[in-house]
Each structure stands twice: as structure tokens, then as C-alpha cells.
Amino acid sequence: MNIAIRKHFYGDIPDEKSGGNSLNESKYESSPSGAAGHDWPLWEVFIRSKQGLDHKHVGSLHAADAQMAIENARDVYTRRMEGVSIWVVESKYVHASNPDEAESLYDPANDKVYRHPTFYKLPDEVEYM
């Protein structure tokens, strides 16, 4: 099977297409609908399963607008009562750090072991600390 690879990485939306930039909005919001659903945007889905917990990323789906995205997210990701709250965000609005820069981005945190409580040796008599 010959596969044409277009390396447009998931989450790596190029600057021209990413969201949250007023210059870009007008260019990409009103595209014609002739492509039979080919341009339903991609949405990321986050679900909070119980009051008090945080929303977790559960997956993605294509939908025409936010309401449809939420309804489809309910159908697909909460079939077993997994949700009290659903967030959907168009994928273009998710900005991500570059994984190749992970080492240098997080380097300052690696050698600050004194941020961890286990670094500190207390006398045995001290209680509740």
C-alpha cells in the first residue's frame, strides 16, 4: 500500500493555521462547504468524570461546530457514565511545546533537587512534618 506522507504533525499546526490570532481567523473560518464534510475541524475532547476531579484528555473527533462536538463527545466518550463535564477545544487552539526541546526546556528543573521534601533530613524527634 503506497502511502503519501504529508508530515503535518498532529498538534503541530503551522503558524498560518493556528488559532487565537485575529489575522488568521478571517482567512480560515469561512471556507466553502463544497468538499462534503472534508473540512469539519478537528476537536480535542476533555472529560471530568466526577465533581472535584480535573478534566482529562480522552481523544479527538471531527465535528462541524462546538455543539455537535459536545454531542458526539458524549456519544463516543461517555457511554459508561464517565462524564459530568465535557470540554471541547478545536485542535488548532491547542498550542504545544516542541518535544525536541523538552530537554533544554525542563533542564533548569532537573538539578534543583532541594524542591523535593525528601531532600531534607530532619531529626527523628520532629513529628508531623
Binding site: I3, K7, Y10, G11, H38, G59
Partner: peptide
């Protein structure tokens, strides 16, 4: 019906995973 509905959901999770590799749903 519930089982068949699950299979549709499974298809979606996997199509979404495929998309992360740089192809479109249409392709």
C-alpha cells in the same frame, strides 16, 4: 445494539490515532 455502538466508537479512537500520524480521515 450496545456492542455494535461500541465498535463504532472503537473505529473512531483508531481513526483518530491514525490521524496523529499525518494522514487525513478522507485519505
Amino acid at each position: 445494539i450496545a456492542k455494535v455502538q461500541d465498535e463504532a466508537g472503537h473505529g473512531l479512537y483508531l481513526y483518530s490515532a491514525t490521524e496523529t500520524l499525518g494522514t487525513t480521515r478522507e485519505e
